[in-house]
């Protein structure tokens, strides 16, 4: 059984009348990427800030590496790296100086630090920009610098708080690949996002949060298995009649059938032959098919089914 790195038990955080965390509990195991998924305001960043002992909280217990986390737990803080949601670097320093400054808060030995800074800069592929100041960097490069500042001291536990907000797709992929490399290198990672695709791509385990509570947790497949719908089939086809639609509806895995503007939408449960069964019946009745799409359920569907609302409002 893998070692527990973080244990949060019944965490409660209130902002006056608003309950930001409502008896929230979670555990993070050594060497895994745990995703905290939820809409804006669901309590993801608040959870991280409480674990980091930055925020006062109203109830509950937090343990990191088996010890109580307090503001003066300097031995624990030495093992932790943070990549905050906002780019947190000094405009007055160059890329190299920023990484060196933040690494210097953890590593005193100059030679060792020099090596670590070089490795961090190479890790985020900023070698060509070491003398640039942050204002000269694009959004994606800034995010990479933000990451380098948080990981240069080789922490065993790293918090990534929405590190890909406002980042172009290429930089986003680089960041996600980098996070997996860190995990493969032995780091434990807590990753928050409201982008379900990212969570699906990199997280070993996911906790879905809403209104300060954990509404579901498990692997991505386990979460998807929690919901009724498992496949959305869309077929562009002209003139399907009522009788054919009823036949499709009679299959045992089919939940809903909707035909509008020459597009047939079918929500189906798990089963290997859903698409082929529907295609067969349409062709048997002489309909000519134009395009066929099959979409697997997403974490958004999971969230939608659990809460009745969309994960992303943007």
């Amino acid at each position: 059984m893998s070692k527990q790195v973080i244990k949060v038990d019944n965490l409660v955080k209130r902002y006056k009348e608003l309950i930001a965390l409502d008896h929230f509990s979670m555990e993070v195991n050594e060497g895994e990427v745990l995703g905290l998924l939820g809409p804006n305001g669901s309590g993801k960043s608040t959870t991280i800030n409480c674990i980091l002992s930055l925020l006062e909280f109203d109830g509950g217990d937090i343990e990191v590496f088996g010890k109580e986390m307090t503001p003066k737990s300097y031995d624990l803080k030495r093992l932790i790296g943070v990549v905050p949601q906002e780019v947190a670097v000094y405009d007055e320093f160059t890329v190299y100086e920023n990484v060196d400054f933040f690494c210097g808060l953890y590593v005193k030995n100059k030679d060792e630090r020099k090596k670590l800074v070089k490795e961090a800069i190479e890790f985020v592929a900023l070698q060509d920009f070491v003398k640039f100041r942050p204002k000269k960097l694009s959004g994606g490069l800034l995010r990479r610098l933000n990451i380098a500042c948080g990981i240069a001291h080789k922490p065993k536990l790293i918090f990534f708080d929405e590190p890909t907000v406002a980042v172009d797709p290429q930089s986003r992929n680089n960041i996600l690949e980098g996070i997996l490399k860190l995990r493969d290198g032995g780091a434990t990672i807590v990753y928050t996002s409201h982008y379900m695709e990212e969570i699906e791509q990199i997280c070993d385990r996911v906790i879905i949060m809403d209104k300060g509570q954990a509404i579901a947790s498990g692997t991505v497949d386990e979460l998807k298995g929690m919901i009724k719908k498992s496949e959305l089939i869309r077929i562009e086809v002209h003139g399907v009649d009522e009788q054919t639609l009823n036949k499709i509806n009679e299959f045992k895995n089919i939940y809903t059938v909707n035909y509008e503007d020459d597009v047939l939408k079918v929500e189906a449960g798990s089963g290997k032959h859903n698409v082929i069964d529907i295609i067969n019946i349409l062709q048997e009745n002489g309909f000519k098919l134009r395009k066929i799409f099959s979409e697997q359920p997403t974490l958004n569907d999971v969230f939608l089914e659990l809460t009745g609302k969309e994960l992303r409002d943007d």
Partner: peptide, 19 residues
């Protein structure tokens, strides 16, 4: 002061092991 910075650099220094 971590709750004031326009850029959250103070947050970063606050979670470091430097008193």
């Amino acid at each position: 002061q971590a709750d004031l910075g326009v850029r959250k650099v103070a947050m970063r220094t606050s979670v470091s092991p430097v008193p």
